[in-house]
Simulated assay, not measured.
Amino acid sequence: MKIIRSASFTAERAWGALDIANMNGITTRLHWTDQPYKWHINDGQEVFVVLDGEVDMHYRENGVEQSTLLQVGDIFHAEVGTEHVAHPRGAARVLVIETEGSV
């Protein structure tokens, strides 16, 4: 059993993570960041939940870049093949559920 107080989690570097669970190759990780990630496409689906802060999520649909502001409690679901990048506005804590080893 684990109890994780996400509001107090920080990392030594942007996108540092606390591994919470690995269920049959699907990982659940808590990330802390204050810097953008990089454009990427995951090997599988990704669920991205903002727990603290705000994140501008940029993604491409049909080759057109779009962006939406994610706030606490908002969930972004990336289907296989969805190119995306997260840009936090200041510090943010994010729960990410994805295939183990995804970018």
Rank of each mutant, 00 (worst) to 15 (best):
T27R: 03
W15D: 00
D19R: 13
A17S: 13
G90P: 00
L18E: 12
M23T: 15
Y37I: 03
V55E: 02
G73E: 08
W32C: 07
E100K: 04
P36M: 06
R60M: 11
G81S: 08
Q35G: 06
I3E: 12
R93Y: 02
L30Y: 09
R93S: 08
H77C: 14
V72E: 15
P36L: 10
D52K: 14
D74V: 01
P36W: 05
L69M: 09
V64W: 06
G81A: 14
E100L: 08
E79N: 13
V64I: 11
G101P: 02
G63Y: 07
L51W: 01
G16V: 02
V72W: 14
V96A: 09
N62W: 09
S102F: 03
R60I: 11
N22I: 05
F9H: 03
P88T: 05
M1I: 09
L30C: 08
G25T: 04
H84G: 00
M57I: 15
V47L: 13
H87C: 10
E83M: 09
S67T: 15
I75V: 15
E54V: 12
V47M: 12
G90C: 04
A92P: 02
L30T: 08
A21Q: 08
Q35F: 04
L69R: 15
D19L: 14
T28M: 13
G63E: 07
A21H: 09
G73P: 00
L51G: 03
G101T: 11
T99E: 13
H84E: 04
Q35Y: 05
I97N: 05
S8K: 06
I41S: 12
V50W: 00
L95Y: 02
N22L: 01
I3A: 13
Q71M: 12
E100A: 09
G53N: 06
F48I: 14
Q45M: 13
D34E: 11
V72P: 08
E83L: 01
L18P: 05
P36T: 11
I75N: 04
G63F: 03
G53F: 01
E100G: 02
H31K: 01
T33Y: 00
T33C: 05
G81I: 11
D34N: 10
K38A: 12
S67K: 15
E100M: 06
R93P: 01
G25V: 02
E79H: 10
R93T: 03
N62L: 14
S102Y: 00
G73K: 04
A91E: 12
E61I: 09
T28R: 05
S102H: 06
E83A: 06
L70M: 10
E54A: 14
V80S: 07
S6H: 14
S102M: 01
Y37G: 05
N42C: 12
D34P: 00
I20D: 03
E79D: 13
P88A: 07
D43M: 15
A86M: 04
D19N: 13
H31F: 06
A14M: 10
R13S: 11
F76M: 07
V72C: 12
D19Q: 14
V47P: 00
S67F: 10
I75K: 06
S6V: 13
D19C: 11
T99L: 15
L30F: 02
G44I: 09
H84S: 12
E61G: 05
E46Q: 11
R60C: 06
H77V: 15
V72H: 14
E12P: 06
